[in-house]
């Protein structure tokens, strides 16, 4: 069943149009990867989906139209974003970052504490540093914190903006393993935006190729890597 359905999404910054009408789908429990070069509009797509920039087109999430919704109600409906460049709250402690992630939730603080404990089990290094300022964490730890913080809102769809950016390959691998595990164990759907094609293709069930604001190809990971021209142009092997 489709979880997220996007038709003709257009967005940009003021006079600058970045997205020229994008169609995409994310099914329940799927990991979908969107590949594209710098400036293709990957980040803009995610920002438009989260509602932080003005956009047109239809966005349906779990059967409800969220194309006009405000960022906070989108988060509340179950879409969480991990911003690019580890957008943590550097002056806040790791614990406070996690609490901030749970901001839209209206359930008891005990339930929130349980969740924090649960994600600390998944990311044990965060638990060790829970009273440290997020800004003092290493790049990989901050990226983990950003993911854990997004998970605190109990999303059904996680939008990940280039989590591998600026990280060592080993740490990136570790991160992707965690994403895969969350997908399998929790049934979390993931829309992953990446430049790092090789790694991302391994965990993807489907792949979109984005070029200057348009989807130019889509299909399963196997299909796309089988196509010679696409492989040479985008995947580089």
């Amino acid at each position: 069943m489709t979880l997220l359905q996007v038709r003709g999404l257009k967005a940009g910054y003021g006079p600058l149009k970045v997205l020229e009408g994008i169609d995409l789908e994310v099914g329940e429990g799927e990991i979908v990867v969107m590949l594209g070069a710098n400036g293709a509009g990957k980040t803009t797509t995610l920002r438009a989906l989260s509602g932080v920039i003005p956009r047109t087109g239809t966005v349906e999430f779990a059967g409800a139209d969220i194309s006009k919704a405000s960022p906070e109600s989108i988060v509340r409906s179950g879409v969480a974003q991990v911003p690019q460049g580890r957008g943590t709250f550097p002056e806040l402690s790791v614990d406070d970052n996690m609490h901030a992630g749970a901001y839209p939730r209206r359930d008891s603080s005990a339930a929130i504490k349980t969740d924090i404990g649960k994600w600390y089990d998944v990311f044990p290094r965060l638990a060790d540093r829970r009273h440290q300022r997020a800004g003092s964490l290493s790049g990989g730890e901050q990226q983990m914190l950003a993911i854990a913080r997004a998970l605190m809102s109990r999303p059904t769809l996680l939008l990940c903006d280039e989590p591998s950016l600026g990280l060592a390959p080993l740490i990136t691998q570790e991160l992707f393993k965690v994403l895969e595990r969350l997908n399998k164990e929790e049934g979390l759907a993931v829309l992953l935006v990446e430049q790092n094609a090789n790694l991302a293709m391994h965990i993807a069930s489907r792949v979109y190729l984005l070029e200057t604001g348009r989807i130019v190809a889509s299909g399963s990971a196997a299909e796309l890597s089988a196509d010679d021209s696409i492989r040479k142009a985008y995947l580089g092997f």
Binding site: R76, A100, P104
Partner: peptide, 23 residues
Amino acid sequence: TKLGLAMRAVASNADSAKLVGIK
């Protein structure tokens, strides 16, 4: 308090604050 947390989060990184659902 939740308001205080939101205020600190906005002070620290307004962009991310929006993305976690803070008005």
